[in-house]
Nucleic acid binder design. Structure first.
Lengths: 342, 342
DNA sequence: TTGAAAGCGCTACCAG
DNA sequence: CTGGTAGCGCTTTCAA
């Protein structure tokens, strides 16, 4: 197995100087190269299977073709992958590649992780999080292009952009999914109390109520922690409280918990009680019985946006942008028109 | 925001040559340096916040401190993250960092993705997959250390190691979870027919049967596709067939589907029917009602092993190793002793 | 139209 | 003990 051929090898093979090889391979139009020479170079390169050493290119150019992703919980979250996939899509299109480090829990480890990225001279940093939370930004001491996807800096500048899901709108859509089908005895099984996502989605609920002329106070509310288990407990509590016909859940996992509880209580879903989820979680929402009517978290798009931002020329936008990505409603089977009161 | 200081800057500040700075900072013991000089260098480095440029180091050394991860479905799979986390853990410990590319579906895109990693001079390649499947290895033309985690090469050499979960043993454990609690009317709701994981887990089931003196043929069997939905359908079919007291499912998602079906059929879980899952899926198995008794897929450990392999000195093992990582049984609430026959 | 030469930031050899 | 010097593989003046 031979070592990788270098530009010098190609030059030697083509009988030209290394400089010329560089010109040809970089397709520089400002430097005229004789067609015959160009052909020879291309041929030699192809023959040897030459591929430029990106590390060397980057070093010389003083710029880099690597994006650094600082991930907050790449593990366990099925979403994290989708966001990284979006980033990669943009990266690949621009000839970039991604380095990923997971944010360790301790502050020191996290700073070190970010620095390890900087030490490799990444072109930019993306703080990526599947949950909408504040993150501590590492003081780098050097200017590096930064964008936040799914999170925002609790300290320091917000970089070039903060990309967040439009959870208010998503919450509104989730509520409307039930409201529009005639449901008025509604319980809101929120996620973790006072977390940004929870607050936003609940605000959307209030908006939706106002839109259909229902008093927001008439919605029963309780909070869990986005786990299946908390959905289960909250649903039991709710149904003991009143004969709700629709449960609006903090996320799909809580919706799943709610379904489990409803089954135990012998309520048919969606026949007797409709359930709306949130997240459109991969391998869950669509596969459920009944399949969840839910709101999709646009992680892929968020990642795409973040990646595009950092791979596009430094450009003009000096004022950090705050981008709210739409969360579309996905209508499936878990919400049906309210049945006539028995 | 100043540019990153280089070694020359440190040297100037300390009033020594750049060479000396290199010696000191690399802590080379073979080259004696006067304590006073060393102190001055260290001081200057600290003052300037100097950090070596890894890209330059790697270029010079001709070796690299980056691991390339070729991920098969980093998206959607909650596991992928755990495996990458394991790889990262090993990587960090050795001063490495990871570049991740997701394997595109088309062959061409995939080869290009792998090459883009090689172009950056990664120290090694890890083909990582959350599902036990064969992958097409890219012909690189150059020798690069490779290990497979959760997959194996369907073409070419198996690299240094192929790391797989011990699904036979896992399947055995899953079956024993039911068998040991007296269950004998058992249905096996397998995953995708003839997929490696399915085959192995079923083999484990046969082993377990033999151990407790039950005829393997006495276990009812059917296959789905590892989705919630298929678990649901298979469970309905099974229960229409016979009065099973335990359902051994292909994975936790199928187990979830089975629970849903059982609820609909008004069978109490686990009171009337026990359910055993597989995967110990994050945010699912533990949060379920009842929490799943399941078998843990050791993705983190597999990643760790893969990472350690590639960050350890080239070493001796020339013969590719086949490593089977144990899948421990996690006992929770979804399996209980069989109730006295009514 | 082509090539010699100077580095990017770093390591490592060898002379002093 | 310390520092000059030669590169790693590449881009980019500047001359020929």
């Amino acid at each position: 197995m031979p070592a990788r051929p270098t530009m010098v090898d190609v030059a030697r093979h083509a009988g030209v100087s290394q400089t010329t090889v560089s010109f040809v391979l970089n397709g520089r139009t400002d430097v005229p190269v004789a067609p015959e020479t160009r052909r020879r170079v291309l041929e030699a390169a192809a023959l040897l299977g030459y591929r430029p050493n990106r590390a060397a290119q980057d070093l010389k150019r003083g710029s880099s073709s690597v994006l650094g992703i600082v991930s907050n919980g790449i593990a366990s979250h099925p979403f994290a992958g989708r966001m990284i996939l979006g980033i990669q899509k943009a990266a690949r299109a621009a000839g970039y590649v991604c380095m990923v480090v997971d944010m360790p829990d301790d502050e020191e480890g996290r700073d070190e992780a970010v620095r390890s990225l900087l030490d490799r001279g990444v072109a930019g940093l993306i703080y990526a999080s599947p949950a909408t939370v504040p993150v501590r930004q590492t003081e780098t001491g050097v200017r590096v292009r930064t964008v936040f996807s799914g999170c925002w800096p609790e300290n320091g500048e917000p970089g070039e952009a903060v990309i967040l899901p439009n959870d208010v709108e998503g919450g509104r859509l989730a509520a409307r999914a039930a409201l529009d089908r005639g449901h008025r005895r509604i319980a809101f099984l929120g996620g973790t109390y006072q977390e940004q996502a929870t607050v936003d989605r609940e605000r959307g609920l209030d908006l939706a109520c106002a839109e259909v002329g229902m008093a927001p106070e008439d919605v029963w509310r309780a909070y869990g922690d986005y786990s299946i288990d908390s959905g289960y407990r909250l649903a039991r509590t709710a149904m003991a409280e009143d004969e709700f016909t629709a449960l609006i859940c903090g996320n799909d996992r809580m919706a799943l918990g709610a379904v489990l509880a409803l089954h135990e209580l012998h309520y048919d879903v969606p026949g007797r009680v409709s359930v709306v989820g949130y997240d459109d979680q991969e391998e869950l929402a669509e596969e459920m019985r009944p399949a969840f009517t839910t709101v999709a978290l646009p992680h892929y798009e968020m990642g795409l946006l973040a990646g595009e931002r950092l791979t596009s020329p430094p450009g003009s936008p000096t004022v950090p942008e705050r981008i709210l990505v739409p969360c579309p409603l996905v209508v499936r089977a878990s919400v049906v028109p309210v049945s006539a009161p028995s």
